[in-house]
C-alpha cells in the first residue's frame, strides 16, 4: 500500500517530456491546475482529459503505473464525491428517501469533483514522474530566485525539499520494518476502536521520529564534512536551458487555451 504512492516518485524513460526544462514543466503544471478549476462544462473536461492522455502517452509512463498511483486517493475521491452527491441542493430530484436526497445537480457536481481530483493527481504525478526531484527543486530554485532579493532563503528551502525527497523512500522502508516488528510483538493495528487505533500508532511513530532525528543528525555532520555552508554561494552541477521542446510546450499551452475559450464561447 505504502509503496503504491507515486507522487514524488521518478519514473525513468527516454521521453521528450523527461527531457524538457523543469521550469517549463512546473509552469505547465501550475497552468494545468488553474485551468482545471476554472473551466466548466462537459466538453472542456473532454479536452483536458484528452490533453492529459496525450501528455501521458508522450511521457512513456505505463498507464497501469499511473493508475496504481491513484489507489491511495480512491477513498478521498469517494468521500468528496459522496459529500457533493448528498449535499448539493437542486431542483431535479432523482431519488429521495428520509434525509437522503439525490439531485441531478448533485450527480453532476460529484462527477465533476471526482474528475477534478483525479486529474489533479495525475497532472502533478506527471510532473514528478518525469522530473527527478533534484531537477525539480533546481527548477523551483530558479523560478523562485526573485524572492532571494527580498531575503527569502530560497537555496536553503530548496535544499530542505531535496533532502526530504531523498529520504522519503528510506523512511518508508523504515516504517514498514517498524510496523512488522511491532506486529510480531502482538501490536494490533486493525482494531475497530478509533481510540485504540490511534494509541497503536505510538509504537510506530516514536521509533520513526527517533530514527528521523538520528538520520538528520548524521546527515548534518556529513554535509558539513563536505564543506556545506548554508550562507555561502554554491555552484550548480545542473544547468538548465530552454530548448525546442520547451517552445513546443508553450505553443501547446496557447493552443490549449484557445480551444478552451472557443468551447466556452461556442457551447
Amino acid at each position: 500500500m505504502i509503496r503504491d504512492i507515486t507522487i514524488g516518485q521518478y519514473y525513468d524513460a527516454p521521453s521528450p517530456i523527461h527531457k524538457m526544462d523543469p521550469r517549463t514543466k512546473i509552469l505547465w503544471t501550475l497552468f494545468y491546475m488553474i485551468t482545471l478549476f476554472v473551466v466548466e462544462g462537459f466538453w472542456s473536461y473532454v479536452v483536458i482529459v484528452a490533453s492529459t492522455a496525450l501528455i501521458i502517452a508522450l511521457s512513456k509512463i505505463p498507464v497501469k503505473f499511473m493508475l496504481r498511483g491513484l489507489k491511495p486517493i480512491i477513498l478521498l475521491v469517494v468521500i468528496t464525491a459522496a459529500l457533493n452527491l448528498f449535499m448539493t441542493q437542486g431542483e431535479n430530484v432523482i431519488f429521495s428517501k428520509g434525509i437522503f436526497t439525490i439531485t441531478l445537480e448533485g450527480v453532476y457536481m460529484a462527477a465533476k469533483m471526482a474528475v477534478r481530483i483525479i486529474l489533479l493527481i495525475i497532472g502533478t504525478s506527471i510532473l514528478t514522474l518525469t522530473t527527478t526531484p533534484t531537477v525539480l527543486t533546481g527548477g523551483l530554485e530558479i523560478l523562485l530566485s526573485p524572492l532571494k532579493k527580498i531575503g527569502v532563503p530560497i537555496s536553503v528551502f530548496v535544499m530542505m525539499v531535496g533532502i526530504a525527497l531523498r529520504f522519503i523512500p528510506t523512511l518508508l522502508d523504515e516504517t514498514d520494518k517498524i510496523i512488522k516488528a511491532q506486529t510480531s510483538r502482538g501490536a494490533d493495528f486493525e482494531n475497530k476502536n478509533p481510540v485504540k487505533r490511534i494509541k497503536a500508532m505510538i509504537p510506530i511513530l516514536i521509533p520513526l521520529f527517533v530514527s528521523a532525528f538520528r538520520r538528520a543528525d548524521d546527515l548534518a555532520v556529513a554535509m558539513e564534512c563536505r564543506c556545506y555552508n548554508a550562507d555561502a554561494d554554491r555552484s550548480s552541477y545542473r544547468r538548465f536551458a530552454f530548448g525546442k521542446r520547451d517552445f513546443y510546450a508553450l505553443m501547446y499551452a496557447v493552443i490549449f487555451v484557445i480551444i478552451l475559450v472557443v468551447i466556452k464561447v461556442v457551447l
Partner: peptide, 17 residues
C-alpha cells in the same frame, strides 16, 4: 544528500563553487 548518484558526488564540489 542527493536523489541521483552523480548529483550526490557533485554536492561537495558545488559547495566549493
Amino acid at each position: 544528500v542527493a536523489t541521483i548518484v552523480e548529483e550526490d558526488v557533485a554536492f561537495g564540489l558545488e559547495n566549493l563553487c
